[in-house]
Simulated assay, not measured.
Amino acid sequence: MSLLDPYIPLLFYLAVWIVIYGLAVLLKADKYGIIAKPYYLMLKTVVFNGWIEKIGGRFRRAWLAFFDIGAAMGVGLLVFVVYSFINNAIGLFRHSSSAGPTLLIIPLPGLTIGWDIFPYILLAIAVLLIPHEVAHGIASVLDKVPLKSSGVFMAIFLPGGFVEIDEENLAKRKARTKLRVFAAGSFTNVATWALVLVLLVALYQPAPTGVLVTGFTNGSPAQTSGLPQWSIITQVNNNATPDVQHLGSYLGSLSPGTNVTVHLTNPSQTLKITTGKSDTNSSRAIIGVQTANYVPLRYQFLPVTSSYQLLTAFGWMQLILLGVALVNMLPLFPFDGDRYLDTLLSVVGLKNTKNVRTVASVISLGLLGSNIILSYILFGTIFPR
């Protein structure tokens, strides 16, 4: 295996990107509203403005109530994210077990993430960004703040959408309008996160019932014994394996070379496998499978593979939607939280908000940076590659 082999898909992807960029330049795509740069392609148009205005015009009272709730909850989101970052930074510094890694998603397939999870992250980012920007647009048109343009973009690996609001017009509006607009994106992301959570609870059972085999290490005992991919391990030597942790714990109690009986479903069968040894610990027994917890659907309307893929997609959406929604409400320029704080300060009568915003930005940047740095030191990169 060549050292370049893991990077061939990435190089191929970049080559395709260069070809697309070259074609956009040669065909003068800017005539059609497509802005082509080496690092992004953007479709900028006013066509979507009409759609956003129509959406905002329907159920106007419901939209106003929704964004009023968002404007009020913005205070809670801002306070919660600052408190969470302070608490987590202290926990990371003290090596507390309650502190968790801070995820900074930079999706570079083959480098920071595996190609197998790249589609899930793209989908999650699209579900994050497009409703986020549309929400800003709807909140604006509700109070007749004009939209200059809107569109979609692809920044090499990052998809998304945008809505360009008439900032001069917005600056002249009442505080209530500004708070609605500035909190709209993050609040919509939180609402989408809650919707995904409801779907998870409605569609899937509350606990795993086995270990799903998603792949194999090359030439592993499980692979050579004919264990099927996407089968579900439910028992090893009559010991129940309801999740990955139980399977790992039981195999860890065995020695390499031990014969084990593996009970499977999907399809239902029993296999005899002789355990191998771990590359990192020669005294630890393994069967050489890549695994995930198998959480069954409440109603089996999808095959196991599709059920796993849907659950994985929901998992990434949950992670990215809530995480980015909260980070976006940090009072840090140029995040929405900075402009939200500026409006709040004006509401309470503070005329010169620049100094307070600068201090808040410096503190927020320090909190964000310390969480990311300490997280990397303690946990490293946690994305599968």
Rank of each mutant, 00 (worst) to 15 (best):
S2K: 11
L14Y: 04
A24L: 14
L27V: 14
K31E: 13
I34D: 09
I34K: 12
Y40S: 09
M42L: 12
K44T: 12
G50I: 12
G57P: 03
F59Q: 14
L64R: 15
F67K: 00
M73T: 11
G76D: 03
L78C: 09
S84Q: 13
S96V: 01
A99R: 00
T112W: 02
I113E: 05
L123A: 14
L129E: 10
E133C: 04
E133P: 04
K144G: 09
G151M: 00
F153K: 03
I156D: 08
G160D: 01
E167N: 09
E168Y: 12
N169R: 15
N169F: 15
A171V: 06
V181M: 04
V181R: 01
T188N: 10
A191H: 12
L197R: 12
V198C: 08
V201N: 10
A207T: 14
T209V: 13
A222H: 04
S225N: 03
S231G: 09
S231C: 09
I233C: 07
Q235I: 12
V236I: 02
N239F: 14
A240Q: 11
T241D: 07
D243S: 04
Y250E: 08
Y250P: 06
Y250M: 05
G257Q: 04
G257E: 03
T258V: 06
T261V: 11
H263D: 15
T275R: 00
T280Q: 15
S282L: 14
V289A: 05
V295E: 08
Y299C: 15
T312R: 13
D342T: 14
V347C: 02
L350G: 10
L350A: 10
N352Y: 12
L365T: 09
L365K: 09
L365M: 14
L367G: 03
I372T: 10
S375T: 00
T381Y: 13
